[in-house]
Design a protein around this nucleic acid. Structure first.
Length: 114
DNA sequence: AAGGTGACCGGCC
DNA sequence: TGGCCGGCCACCT
């Protein structure tokens, strides 16, 4: 749909999606990590913005993307309030109070795959 | 065209 | 110790 021409964003967004899409189950990553993988570590905001667009992308496991604090900052954007937490727990990730337990342990670095 | 915003990060006061 | 601010890039109104 939308056989539109290339929007400058498509390129950037697509990269973010590609990274998030590569996140293995039971693993989580941070915006900064993705941004860094894109070559814009300081543009973590953009990553979050891209995730916002990922709302329409069911292929994007945004629930595996959290902030550097290991907190489900974006859970507010999911359908249910605790849906994000449920998904993570379903993958074996323990989440308490919207915060991932042993976050660094479940942390997945995108550059490793790249 | 310009300004404001956005699921952030890091440093500084 | 905590809160505030700037920076980054792109999108939206």
């Amino acid at each position: 749909m939308a056989p539109k021409k290339t929007k400058s964003s498509d390129n950037f967004f697509e990269r973010v999606y590609e990274i998030a899409r590569q996140i293995p189950e039971g693993r989580v990553t941070s915006y900064g990590a993705i941004a860094k993988a894109l070559g814009a570590a300081r543009s973590a905001r953009m990553v979050g913005w891209a995730m916002n667009a990922s709302h329409n992308m069911e292929d994007i496991p945004a629930h595996r993307v959290v902030n550097r604090n290991g907190v489900l900052s974006g859970k507010h954007h999911f359908e249910g309030t605790n849906l994000m937490q449920q998904l993570l727990e379903n993958e074996g990730i323990e989440v308490i109070d919207n915060q991932i337990v042993d976050f660094e342990k479940h942390f997945w670095l995108p550059d490793v795959v790249l």
